[in-house]
Design a protein around this nucleic acid. Structure first.
Lengths: 159, 159
DNA sequence: ATTGAAAGTTTTCATGC
DNA sequence: GCATGAAAACTTTCAAT
């Protein structure tokens, strides 16, 4: 689906505050509240907008430990199998299969290093996991969940 | 700050739909709309809730290529310097300093492999970057932005 | 801390441009 | 595809419990 400039700005405003009213967004982009709602409904129906969520501070609720775990899997392990082995694990923020030495990278959040260790052991105990390699996060520098820019026709933003 | 069970459920509901009305949330947790608003206001004021945002499907707007880039930096490069070098770069989803061989890991989203390559070159051209090591994401298996579970007192043993 | 109700907004939808 | 206007629903505030 193709987003025009107004769609881009609406998406950016929702990224900054997903609970903004249609009237507020409309005032910012020069549209009526109903026109804004129509566009957001269309963006949602078309799958561009997957939903609206809350941004939490994990550290504020005692989940301040973060790590990336590389998974080295048994031959012929399917992505589906990896996903199945990770779902239900509350500590898993994200996971993906990757190129390179490892087969998958799992992003973990835990309460503390003890909890992290326990989680790594739990994941490492999955039958398809041959070994794991963990990288502890020291400090988070950037955390952008939404494209910060009205992505125009090519021309990525300069540094 | 300490979250009680009701707070946990409210946060989980907001995670699933940040535009849910106070009345809807109240019905789900057995509270009035005003009580829900008070709790959400308190969670926001205390920093547990950092804000509300939209979840997009990057592939739906043509940003379907994803990679992790490990940064090997010059000696005595500060995290602040790394952050400064990455801010304003629309392709950077997240970045953090880490333990292990590399100094930092940068999560990138781009339109295609060409755009990714150009981004890697741009980041690699930063004065503090000695070399980079890229890992391309093949398929995303899990993408949980919010703690999926009412984290109860699973008590990290000891302390 | 929560409720319940009043006043002010927002959403929703039908209509017309 | 957008604006307008009216009805319904929601948010916000505050007195009371």
């Amino acid at each position: 689906m193709r987003l025009d400039d107004v769609d881009e700005r609406i998406v950016a405003l929702l990224g900054a505050d997903a609970r903004a009213t249609f009237a507020e967004i409309g005032a910012a982009v020069g549209l009526s509240a109903s026109a804004v709602k129509r566009r957001i409904d269309r963006l949602t129906a078309s799958g561009v907008i997957r939903g609206f969520t809350v941004r939490l501070d994990p550290a504020a609720i005692g989940w301040g430990t973060e790590a990336y775990i590389e998974l080295y899997c048994r031959a012929r392990t399917s992505p589906t199998e990896i996903r199945a082995g990770l779902t239900g694990c509350a500590e898993v923020i994200s996971a993906c299969t990757v190129t390179g030495d490892a087969d998958a990278v799992v992003h973990i959040r835990a309460r503390d290093v003890g909890h992290l260790e326990e989680t790594i052991e739990r994941i490492g105990a999955q039958p398809f996991v041959v070994r794991t390699k963990s990288t502890l996060v020291l400090s988070r520098l950037v955390d952008q969940q939404v494209l910060p820019e009205p992505a125009p026709d090519m021309a990525p933003a300069g540094l």
